[in-house]
């Protein structure tokens, strides 16, 4: 058979158009609330892809019973919040979205995805159990965990007199003893800016002057404090500090009386998902009392009022929380990351 150039061009064009139509057709509307989820269709869809910033051990624990119950495979991409968000946006820009559901510990990221029209409204059964500030009025996102930035310290280093306030970390004697975390994509910035907004930049700048050791994640910061590379950690994830203490790694943590930043992690369903029923089913499992209890067992606070706080932990209502302004953070993120680079140096993804 003689293959002409015209034949090749026509075939390639038809194939590309066909693929594009198939993709568009695949991204169907999907269920709008829990009642509309068709479990048989979800099972037929067979798979869910989630992009998440949650610790893999927790993700694996949540996935296992879901997979067993429904026989639906769950594949996940795990990275820091900013990286997860960057991947969702890049794929959307290229028209090659892969994820069915996204979860990030930075609500501003979900707000940006909503603004770009990437999220699909879905009314979760859990909505009624969450305060209004923790769910989108348009139902495109819902808060799935609360993380508080606490002060973690090495017990052997400080004994019975650990630093009690954030400002204590900026004292001259703390030079070379403080650690903080942020990935190169700027994941640690939201809680630092919250601290600066509530307590003033002077506190943050004085801490930066002690030359704190930067780590890429809360978990690596815990390691640094456990082995006494540094004595105290700034704005540690409460669940990581809780686990380190529980495992007897020689650390403890406290909630400074002036308040701790509380970070809303949130999840949402992608509009482009080609497996809308399986994705919605998993979303509801993730947000169910059972799914959220897994998070609680792992030290995370659930936004659901019917899920108990982590074992031996303060109820969230007893804490003084420093609230984050997510809308402002989303709008001014580039400027804020520049500020972080100015104050702390290093890479912030700006």
């Amino acid at each position: 058979m003689r293959i002409t150039r015209r034949f090749t061009i026509i075939t390639a064009t038809a194939w590309s158009a066909n693929a594009a139509i198939a993709r568009a057709a695949g991204a169907e509307t999907g269920p709008e609330n829990t009642a509309q989820i068709d479990i048989a269709r979800a099972k037929a869809e067979g798979r869910v892809v989630i992009y998440t910033s949650l610790d893999t051990q927790l993700v694996d624990t949540i996935i296992a019973p879901f997979r067993e119950r429904y026989g639906i495979e769950v594949t996940y991409f795990r990275a820091g919040s900013a990286e997860v968000t960057g991947k969702v946006l890049a794929e959307a820009d290229a028209g090659r979205s892969q994820a069915d559901m996204v979860d990030a510990s930075d609500l501003a990221a979900l707000l940006l995805m909503k603004e770009r029209g990437l999220l699909r409204p879905f009314e979760s059964a859990a909505r009624a159990l969450l305060p209004a500030s923790q769910r989108d009025p348009d139902s495109t996102w819902i808060v799935d965990r609360l993380t508080q930035g606490v002060l973690q310290y090495n017990v052997a280093e400080f004994g019975a007199a650990p630093p009690q306030h954030w400002a204590d970390l900026g004292r001259a004697g703390m030079a070379g003893r403080v650690s903080f975390w942020s990935a190169s994509s700027g994941d640690g910035a939201p809680r630092i800016i919250t601290l600066a907004q509530h307590l003033g930049w002077d506190v943050v700048k004085s801490i930066a002057r002690t030359k704190p050791l930067r780590t890429v994640s809360p978990q690596t910061m815990a390691q640094i404090i456990e082995r006494r590379e540094r004595g105290v950690g700034l704005l540690q994830n409460d669940n990581v500090a809780w686990r380190s203490k529980l495992q007897g790694k020689g650390t403890d943590f406290l909630f400074p009386s002036e308040g701790v930043p509380s970070e809303f992690g949130a999840c949402g369903l992608l509009k482009t998902s080609t497996r809308p029923h399986a994705a919605a089913l998993f979303h509801e499992w993730w947000m169910s009392a059972e799914g959220q209890a897994v998070l609680s067992k792992g030290g995370k606070y659930s936004p659901r009022t019917d899920v108990a706080p982590p074992e031996n932990s303060l109820p969230i209502t007893k804490m003084k929380l420093l609230e984050q302004d997510y809308t402002t953070y989303k709008r001014d993120r580039a400027k804020i990351l520049d500020q972080m680079a100015d104050v702390f140096g290093g890479e912030w993804g700006n």
């Binding site: 990275a79 820091g80 900013a82 990286e83 968000t85 960057g86 946006l89 890049a90 990221a109 940006l112 190169s184 994509s185 700027g186 050791l213 930067r214 780590t215 890429v216 993120r333 990351l337 702390f344 140096g345 290093g346 890479e347 912030w348 993804g349 700006n350």
Partner: peptide, 20 residues
């Protein structure tokens, strides 16, 4: 990264892995 020193390959990575 802990040393707060940025090189071209890590800068390229951060430029893409942050958002947008």
């Amino acid at each position: 990264m802990p040393a707060q020193i940025v090189f071209l390959p890590t800068r390229i990575y951060a430029t893409i892995s942050s958002y947008p």
